[in-house]
Nucleic acid binder design. Structure first.
Ligand SMILES: [Mn+2]
Ligand SMILES: [Mn+2]
Ligand SMILES: [Zn+2]
Ligand SMILES: [Zn+2]
Lengths: 137, 137
DNA sequence: AAAGTTCATGCAACCAAGTTGCAAAGTTAC
DNA sequence: GTAACTTTGCAACTTGGTTGCATGAACTTT
């Protein structure tokens, strides 16, 4: 079931300010993850720092997660409603080397890996690079 | 069989200058991956840019590979002799959140993953974060 | 051997992304 | 309405990485 924006914010204990609602709206409209710089381009009035801090607040409260796709700029995407960003909640990300979009492959959990003895897992990230279905002809 | 430094360089078609031999020596002495800044600290005389370009040359010729462990500074480690940095050659990396060292888990290949239809894989990276065996008591 | 060519190195300056400090504006509590 | 707290905006800074360019070393050609 779809949530209205204020519910999404309230559910994550984020005070719903005008700015935050606008940022959340942009985030829900994305089909791929978005960087701070890209987010900035979507606004003419808002300051980069405010957007930065908004994303930080969202991430701290697990409304969004960040993705380091190796391009040098961190991408952000909405978490699923039940996501707590535990290792179990994590999914694979895909970076298209043609269109430079970063996809959440929400249906593809990160495969488990056997670490050497006495190595302890806290979190894990998996980024696949290649050509996305839009760019593949 | 261990190779002497010049052979390692020659095998990868890298002209063996004094600087490159020194950098290679440092790299072979590492048990964990090293950043440009860390490498710089190992020299009192060499310029950061020279070290940067040395690493770049090494990487382009697949003598070393770079690791984006999510810390914001890229790490570098020697490739195995046969490595061509193909998807098949890739291994899992481990970043210890206590000692902040980045390990090549050379024996742990990256598990294969089924991508959505029409997504095409070129390369893949997997970084596990947690506590390493040295830090685990 | 001298001159030309290529490549490596060093210094300075630049760049992009992210981050901090602080004051002004807005919001909530009393 | 005033005080306390939170959010926002501007400026300035930090870090890691990168480029431009001049000097210097090392091979190549004649
Ligand atoms: Mn995602
Ligand atoms: Mn490695
Ligand atoms: Zn694409
Ligand atoms: Zn450790």
């Amino acid at each position: 079931m779809a949530q209205n924006p204020d519910n999404l914010l309230n559910n994550r204990n984020i005070k719903p300010t005008a700015m935050r609602e606008l940022v959340l709206k942009v985030l829900t409209e994305q089909t791929t993850a978005i960087s701070l710089a890209e987010l900035e381009h979507k606004f003419h009035k808002a300051d980069k720092v405010t957007l930065f801090r908004t994303l930080k607040t969202f991430e701290e409260n697990k409304l969004i997660h960040s993705i380091d796709d190796g391009t040098g700029s961190v991408k952000y995407a909405l978490c699923t409603e039940s996501c707590q960003c535990n290792p179990d909640d994590l999914h694979v990300h895909f970076f298209c080397t043609l269109c430079h979009h970063t996809f959440c492959l929400n249906d593809i959990p990160i495969p488990s890996v056997n670490l050497p003895v006495h190595f302890n897992l806290e979190s894990i990230s998996m980024v696949v690079k290649g050509i996305c279905s839009n760019c593949k002809k």
